[in-house]
Design a protein around this nucleic acid. Sequence first.
DNA 1: GTAAGTAGTTACCTTCAGGTAAGTAAATCT
DNA 2: AGATTTACTTACCTGAAGGTAACTACTTAC
Lengths: 116, 116
Amino acid sequence: MAKAIKKETCQYRLIAGKDAMEVLQGKWRIPIIISLTDGDKRFGEIQREIGNISPKMLSQELKALEENKIITRTLYDSMPVTVEYSLTPLGRSTDKLLEEFLKWGTHFRNEIVGNR
Amino acid sequence: MAKAIKKETCQYRLIAGKDAMEVLQGKWRIPIIISLTDGDKRFGEIQREIGNISPKMLSQELKALEENKIITRTLYDSMPVTVEYSLTPLGRSTDKLLEEFLKWGTHFRNEIVGNR
DNA sequence: GTAAGTAGTTACCTTCAGGTAAGTAAATCT
DNA sequence: AGATTTACTTACCTGAAGGTAACTACTTAC
């Protein structure tokens, strides 16, 4: 190993933070994961739940999440073809992170967003 | 209250997630917070620690974090003027979130980033 | 007087995330 | 034959995020 970086150092933390942001960055990734945490969903269902995401962005972000092994895409040969998206184990492993994310989002809203 | 949204619903979670992302979004916010978690720092120290951030971006993001009450700026009337940045209680309240962020970032790196 | 260190600012440019609008394809309903 | 539903794709455009480089202002050291 060339220049191993210890787990406790600030440098190590900076790299781990960058890694996580690379996958979760952007306006739609977290919302999509939140939506799928609620249960497997179809394209249209996710779109309606998130509300104002265009099919282009949804399609694009779902592909990116699939490439990063966060979700899987399953095509069902039903009458109008349906596609179901679900979280992989890796996707589900964001649960604790998501929980803290939501807790902090709520805290922040109460502290700041509400007073402006 | 008009149409209260229950804490458990997917809609509530989507809003909290959006709130959190509003503050933490971008390439540099999380790294800056990580850097300051390590202790109060001066402009140049943060810049050297993060490594490749330009003074323009650092200045801009520090201002944004200050506006959101995540950090404070203190000017010291020393011989070359120094400025110290530190986390506010609200800023420090990201510690659990940050921890999960870093845990997951490491997990993700081991699962995916390492294998590509 | 000039270099070096403090903490930025300013102007300019490029890239890409994201938005908008319309089109595609296959099947089923009416 | 035309409308509807599902799940997208494609082309085009805009604005914001971020990068680069140079400049400012003050003080100390050489």
